[in-house]
Design a protein around this nucleic acid. Structure first.
Lengths: 139, 139
DNA sequence: ATAGCTGCAAATGCTTTGCAAGGCC
DNA sequence: GGCCTTGCAAAGCATTTGCAGCTAT
């Protein structure tokens, strides 16, 4: 009853199983949109629109919940570049970002294209969870 | 570590004049809170609260407008670390930040404590407006 | 069967705006 | 006086939540 494109080997189901999230129709569909292509930076609103245009009936609230669940289990990374707009990155490996201030677009900077020579020590009792580099572009 | 120093000659008035903003009572008062002490990271809500507790009558809307005007003329820098919460930094020189994910606090990393060895070239037709490093801490 | 999901709509939190009244030059 | 600012309250957005009904196992 669904018009979802069936790929012979979608990673979506396996990924959900691996992290122990029940593979419901909505989660599976969203996982396919997110993971069955190349890496991407996407907002909740965008993903919702994309889901609807692929005939996947899912509410915006569920999209938000799902994105946060995925982030919680490490399938996604949340990126905040702009007040009041969150992006989710399907690439959770070590890398950084270009941010086009005019258009609001994000673009990966591969890990080897940027090098941080000296990272300061974490203050007493704290540990570094992540070093995030955002190169802001205009023009 | 340090108490706020009362300076006999507030820089606030001069700063406003220098950037061509009319020194109204509200702007002057906010400028004093912001610039007459050590550098700080502050949210609109915090500044508003602080203003009220210093007997400065100012509306939250005016605080927002003022912070953005100050940012527009380079007196402040806006920092986004968390979806839906903006901080304004009175230190506009080149430096980076620790972000305490648990408490939401920000802390400066002096420019010399961090070094970016290799910065990627800006894409065709773009120029780098700023390289921002956020070291996220937890614990 | 039942614990966990989902949709909807209402609620929330931060931020911006419209407009009449007030203040600075 | 004239124009810029301000205050208030209402509007705006993105996001979250409460709850009744649905679903995967």
């Amino acid at each position: 009853m669904s018009m979802i494109t069936i790929r012979p080997y979608s990673q979506a189901l396996d990924r959900l199983r691996a992290v122990g999230l029940r593979p419901t129709r909505q989660r599976l569909a969203l996982a396919r949109l997110l993971f069955d292509g190349c890496d991407r930076h996407i907002s909740a609103e965008q993903l919702h629109t994309e889901a609807l245009s692929t005939n996947i009936r899912v509410s915006l609230a569920t999209v938000y919940n799902t994105l946060h669940q995925f982030t919680g289990v490490g399938l996604l990374r949340e990126i905040v570049v702009d007040a009041g707009r969150s992006y989710f990155d399907t690439n959770t490996s070590d890398h950084h970002h270009f941010f086009y201030e005019n258009s609001g677009k994000l673009c990966d900077i591969p890990a080897e294209m940027i090098a941080i020579a000296k990272v300061p020590q974490a203050p007493e009792g704290m540990r570094i969870s992540r070093v995030e580099v955002i190169v802001r572009l205009e023009g």
